[in-house]
Amino acid sequence: MSLRHLRCFFAVAQTGSFTLAAQQLFKTQSSLTATIKQLEDLAGVQLFDRTTRRVELTKDALWFKEVAGRILRDFDNAVSDLQAVSRSERGHIKIAVAPSMMPHVLAPALVAFRRSYPEVAISVHDEGSDKIERSILEGTTDFGLSTPLNNFPDLDYTPVLADPFGAVYPKDHPLARHKGKLTWADLRHHEYVGLTKDTGIGALIYRFPELRLDDQGSEYDHASSTTSLYALLKLGSRITVLPSLAAHTGQMTEFEFRELHEPRIEREICLITRHLRSFSPTTRRILEILMKTIREMDSIYGARILNSEDGLKPSRRNAVSEKEPRSLPPQEHPGVRRHTLG
């Protein structure tokens, strides 16, 4: 027994005529009659009493008409909904991003997406790198934009942006009077506030002990986010180190930012997705708009777009120099995939 049988039965039950039902279904009357006979054989009961003027439902078939109608409506509605999702006329996209990606990258991409697909619901969460990666791994988020932290083998990381690190300090700090290029060595004699190791930015700094920002012989202040970092910087006379996009986001714009040299170091932002997970048509459309937005970005606060004429490619750098900025790579794990966006 199939939906074909139910459609034929319901059409005859509704019209009370094999002739009208056949026309409605674009079938020959003989074909429709054969299908109804087959359904009666499968069910083991007679479904219609046939007279010369009208076809009527038997007592055994009266209740079945309501059931068949409900099944057909549910099926047709489900197919309609599925087609609407494929056209992005409805659906739900869940995105997790580093806070610094919100105003500079995601917001303009969402404006363009909503303009074309106004009926799609969008959920956005600004989280730290660890939570972003885990939410994608657990399937509660469709994709993320962040600095890689855990490098889970089941996730794919596609580099899309790199922005340089710099010093962040109050406008009346002694560093504001520093002439010429600011180097990492220039920071060593100032009170430093760092981000914790479980943040993407903090983890990157900790992987380069030669920078010696924490070599002060005692404990120093830590923050778990740029929000709490702002509060510590407001205590005065303190400095921190952030990538340029993070330093030009939200409350952090209250402070001065100067790019650091010797070495010049960049943070790498990746599009993070679940490995082997198929994108829904809606997710694929928003990703296409997101990547188009990134490619068309003017240079914002020294950020560099990691793309080329043949697509986005991972940044592979093995030396630190003034001519070739260093992208701080996440610690690689066996099996970690670094991808271009195809």
Rank of each mutant, 00 (worst) to 15 (best):
E66D: 14
N318I: 08
I300F: 05
E56A: 06
S237F: 04
L328I: 14
P325M: 11
R274I: 00
M101C: 15
D214S: 15
L62G: 00
A78L: 10
L232W: 01
H5R: 03
Q251L: 13
S2E: 12
R73V: 13
G139C: 09
I289V: 13
A176R: 01
S80N: 09
A78R: 12
T15P: 01
T33A: 10
F64D: 03
S308G: 15
A246M: 07
I265G: 04
T249P: 11
N318Q: 09
A319F: 12
R304S: 15
Q24W: 03
I289W: 04
T196E: 07
K234D: 04
E56K: 10
A96D: 10
T293L: 07
L204A: 13
K131F: 06
A34G: 02
F143L: 10
T141V: 15
L271F: 10
L233Y: 00
L341P: 03
L271G: 02
D156Q: 13
A21H: 09
D215N: 15
T35H: 02
D154P: 03
S30M: 06
D186Y: 12
P314S: 05
L47S: 04
E89M: 05
S228V: 13
P170T: 00
Y230N: 12
N307Q: 04
P153A: 13
A84D: 14
H190E: 03
A162T: 08
Q24A: 12
P148C: 05
R285W: 01
R54F: 10
P325H: 09
E324K: 11
Q216T: 08
F257L: 01
D214P: 07
A162R: 06
S17P: 10
K313S: 12
D310N: 14
L20N: 09
S225R: 08
L328V: 11
A167C: 11
E322N: 10
E210S: 09
S224N: 13
A68Q: 07
K234Q: 14
S135K: 08
D130H: 13
R114L: 08
Y220H: 15
V241T: 09
R277W: 06
R114T: 14
A203Q: 13
S280C: 08
D130P: 03
A68W: 02
H190N: 04
L235V: 00
R188S: 06
T199L: 10
T52E: 12
E288W: 00
S116H: 07
A96W: 08
V336M: 15
Q14I: 01
W63K: 11
I136T: 02
L137C: 02
A61L: 06
D130K: 13
E256F: 01
A319S: 14
S321V: 01
S225D: 12
E322Q: 13
S2K: 14
D198K: 15
T253P: 04
Q29E: 10
P325N: 11
N151M: 14
G44F: 04
T227N: 08
D172S: 08
A11I: 07
D60V: 06
Y192N: 02
P325D: 13
S88W: 02
L20V: 15
A185M: 06
L110E: 07
K65A: 15
